[in-house]
């Protein structure tokens, strides 16, 4: 399958909406599966998107996931209206989390979200303004992954 034009879309996320957590990443996974992309590319995109989705649900008021699937790569941008991250370097460390206890009891907030996103990305960028929100940009290369 060769993607000629870019395929774009977006999902809206509501902070605190744990019930619908995973729906956006699952829909993106279906779109990528239908395009016949490599399983490994799909898996990485789905994990990175799910972790980004969870961060918005856990920490922010609302957010949006934008995706564009291009011939060479998938770009996923997640931005939120949230508290922002004071120290990005610290937030990127595995095990560091500011999630409240009740979220940790659900098995989230283990400080693995951002590291998992980075591990599954070929390029990963994060920008944040305290009191305004955070934007994460994930790029996953698909060029070698075409069937």
């Amino acid at each position: 399958m060769i993607i000629k034009n870019s395929i774009e879309g977006s999902f809206h996320l509501t902070g605190g909406d744990f019930t619908n957590a995973g729906i956006a990443s699952s829909e993106l996974k279906s779109i990528l599966t239908e395009l016949g992309l490599d399983d490994n590319v799909i898996r990485r995109a789905a994990i990175a998107t799910f972790e980004a989705e969870m961060n918005v649900i856990i920490h922010a008021i609302a957010g949006t996931i934008y995706y564009s699937i291009m011939p060479e790569h998938i770009k996923i941008i997640v931005n939120d209206m949230g508290p922002g991250i004071e120290d990005i370097e610290l937030a990127m460390q595995e095990g560091y989390s500011t999630a409240p206890d009740w979220v940790r009891e659900m098995g989230w907030g283990a400080g693995m979200g951002l590291p998992n996103m980075k591990k599954n990305s070929d390029e990963f960028k994060i920008d944040s303004v305290v009191g305004e929100g955070t934007t994460v940009e994930i790029i996953i290369n698909i060029k070698q992954g075409l069937r």
Binding site: F18, A21, M106, G107, W108, A110, G113, N116, K119
Partner: peptide
């Protein structure tokens, strides 16, 4: 849950104490 996302493998059966929809 992030640990399962990072390290679980396709076809695995998952043993957990978590009971919520996620």
């Amino acid at each position: 849950l992030s640990d399962v996302m990072a390290n679980g493998k396709e076809g695995d059966i998952w043993i957990t104490h978590q009971t919520h929809p996620n």
